[in-house]
Design a protein around this nucleic acid. Sequence first.
DNA 1: AGTGCGGCCTGTCCGC
DNA 2: TGCGGACAGGCCGCAC
Length: 271
Amino acid sequence: MPELPEVETTRRGIAPYVLRQVVRAVVVRQPQLRWPVPTTLARELPGHTIEAVDRRGKYLLLATDIGHVILHLGMSGSLRVVPHTQPPEKHDHVDLVLSSGNCLRLRDPRRFGAVLWTRKDPTKHKLLANIGPEPLGPEFNANYLYERSRGRKRAIRDLLLDGRLVAGIGNIYANEALFAAGIDPRRAAGRIGRERYRRLVEAVRTTLRSAITAGGTTLRDFHGATGDPGYFQLTMKVYGREDEHCPRCQQTIRAQALGGRRVFFCVRCQL
DNA sequence: AGTGCGGCCTGTCCGC
DNA sequence: TGCGGACAGGCCGCAC
């Protein structure tokens, strides 16, 4: 589910409720997520204050004076702030009980998400060390994409999904950005010129920013920390719109399988 | 090195 | 109404 805009929406939503809060307890009802929730988390975190809530790609980081909680929402995860007395529902796997009386609650039906704990520099953590630049940061620019794509035969959509090249972009926003840039998602990345990469970088930034402003995309069950859904799906141009009309030229939007996940595009507007 | 695929899970939807 | 199968927003780890 959650791509960068949903994770950022979550970060902004939980931050006011968790910053400066002391973690009183960690309740793990289901430790079997993508990786087991480390037992050291419940042992070491209580008594420490959450000093920052950061995001790196699709990872959320809760900083304390002795270590960092690394959270990933996988495909179906979400975080909510609720009173700690509120009974957990079926897929509510982990609670961080806070000094305010609230708790930060992770729900994740498919359990592709993760809750990890590291006492070292989190950017050196195996999962974070090799992530590419933030798409909204200065390192992600046309020259970077152009250089990194020379000689690559992979479809540009797949390159955008590769977290080692750029962080946080998933299938929805890759498809939307490629439509906005007028680039065929199937095109070999090595056969796209500098000028078109300039357009693509702008399209990625614009798409992600407007999705964050809209509170993310709610296709099934995504919601922010206070339970509000996102609204970006209302403005999506191609994703999930197979057989509908292209909003720019009225051509029928096509979908096809590409390496396991579908691409959506307009054959007239995207070359 | 770059590429493509299997696998981890549950829920939903579609066709029969 | 029930059931099997395909599919879904991610991404690591592996084989080639």
